[in-house]
Design a protein around this nucleic acid. Structure first.
Lengths: 221, 221
DNA sequence: GCAAAAGTGTTCTTTATACACCCATGT
DNA sequence: ACATGGGTGTATAAAGAACACTTTTGC
C-alpha cells in the first residue's frame, strides 16, 4: 500500500499486504508505523505494506516489504485477516491481506521513515489501518493464553520475570509471581540454561530458554 | 473459482473466494462439494466459490456464490485464511480468500450439482481444496472448545443430548453425560424452552435454546 | 547497610473427573 | 413388558488463587 500504485495504474484486483509489527519496548507494547505518502492521507501514518506481485505469494510480499520499509527480516509472521471493503483505499479497489509480526526488542533498531509507537498512542491512521491494528491486538491477546507465541517477543535467553512481564503487558493485568512460576515450569516449555543475568543491583536471575516443540497448548496462563 | 474465468482472460490479480460449508448430517460431519468443470480437474470435486467482482466485498462474493451454487443463504460464515500459492490454479494466478460456513442439518436439502460428502471420504479435490478443508476442520475443532460456534449447526430448539452429540462428533471423543450437562447448564448459555421432544420411543427430552450473548468464552468443554 | 528484584510453600477454593441407577415414553 | 434414550448426585482428584518472607547482588 504505497508508492508503487498510483491513481492511473490501479486496476482490479489490486492485491496488497499490510503488516502489524509488534514489539514490547521498555515495557510497553509498540507498533511499527511508517509515513504514508498518498495525498489523501497527508501527514498520517500507516502500516508497512505494499503490492503483491504476480510472481510472489502473500508471505513473500510481506517479507519483501518489511525488509524494504521496516528493515526487519526473519521475524515471526502470521496471517491475520483479509480486508476487502470496497472503499478502504481512496485511490481504487485494493484488497489487503493483513499479517501480524512479532519482533524482540533487540531487533527494533531505528529505520529511516519508520517509527515504533506505543499502541495506545497511534492516533488516526491512514486507510483502515486502525481496524487492522485492533485485529492484530485481539489476535495477540487471545493467542498468548493458549500458545507459546510470546517467545517471539523475547531474547533467546530470558528470565522468568521477563517472561511474566510479557504476559502482564499483553494481557493488561498482573500475575502472581509464585503461581506464574509454578505453572510455567510445570508446563515444561522452558528450561534453565544454567546462565545467570548479572550486573543488576539485585540477586542474579536464572536465564531460561524455550524447549523446542510443535504441539499446540491450551490455557498457558 | 469456476466458469467465469478462462485461460484467456486471467490477469493479475484474480481474486476468488472458496467456502467450506460444513454440516452434521445423520451424526456425521459433512462438507458440501460441487463438480469442477475446468479440464485440468476433470471428474474432480471442489469447494463452492468464484470470483470477487470489483464492486463487492469478499463476504458479498461468498454469499452470492453460495446462493447460486449451493442454494444456501443466511448461514454462519467466518473468514478462514487467504491462499496465495502461485500455482494453486493451473489456469493462472488466483488468490483465494477461504471461508468456513456452518449450516444446520435442516438446511442441507439437495441442490443440482452439489453434494454433501462425509469429511473422511472426500478423496482428492481440485486445486488446493483439500488443504482448505483441513484448515476449516482445524478451525472448527479449535473454536468449538472456546466459543458457542456449535449453535450454528443445531436447530433453534434442541435437546442436551443433541448438543452433546455435536461436541462429540466435532471433537472425535465421547463426553460424560452428567458432567456435560452440569457444565453446559452452569455456563448459562442455553435455557429450557419448556417444550419437549416427543414421538420417540423413550422418555421425552426437554428442548433448549441459546441465550443471546455477545461475549467470548473459554473452555466450554 | 540499603535498595532492588529473585526465589520459594502452604492453605483454601474451585473445577474436573469418574461413575450407576431410575424414569417416561412408544411399540 | 420391554427397549430406548432422558434425567439425576456424590465422592475424589486436580488445578487455581491467595498470600509473605528470605536471599543475593550492586552501590
Amino acid at each position: 500500500m504505497s508508492k508503487n500504485i498510483s491513481k492511473n495504474n490501479l486496476k482490479f484486483a489490486v492485491l496488497a499486504v499490510d503488516t502489524v509489527l509488534l514489539s514490547i519496548i521498555d515495557g510497553i507494547l509498540h507498533v511499527l508505523l511508517i509515513d504514508v505518502s498518498v495525498p489523501q492521507f497527508k501527514g498520517k501514518k500507516g502500516l508497512p505494506g505494499g503490492m503483491i506481485t504476480p510472481t510472489e505469494t502473500a508471505e513473500e510480499a510481506v517479507a519483501r516489504h518489511l525488509s524494504n520499509k521496516a528493515g526487519v527480516s526473519k521475524t515471526f509472521l502470521e496471517q491475520l485477516y483479509t480486508f476487502s471493503s470496497i472503499k478502504r483505499d481512496p485511490r481504487g479497489r485494493v484488497v489487503s491481506v493483513a499479517y501480524m509480526g512479532l519482533v524482540p526488542e533487540s531487533k527494533t533498531g531505528a529505520v529511516e521513515g519508520a517509527v515504533w509507537v506505543p499502541v495506545n498512542k497511534i492516533g488516526k491512521l491512514a486507510y483502515d489501518h486502525n481496524e487492522i491494528v485492533l485485529t492484530a491486538l485481539g489476535r495477540l491477546r487471545s493467542k498468548v493464553i493458549y500458545t507459546d507465541i510470546v517467545k517471539n517477543l523475547l531474547p533467546k535467553e530470558f528470565t522468568l520475570s521477563q517472561l511474566q512481564e510479557m504476559y502482564e503487558i499483553i494481557l493488561g493485568s498482573e500475575l502472581d509471581k509464585r503461581n506464574f512460576r509454578k505453572k510455567i515450569l510445570k508446563l515444561g516449555l522452558v528450561k534453565a540454561t544454567g546462565n545467570e543475568q548479572r550486573g543488576e543491583a539485585n540477586r542474579p536471575a536464572s536465564l531460561y530458554k524455550w524447549v523446542a516443540t510443535k504441539r499446540q497448548f491450551s490455557d498457558l496462563i
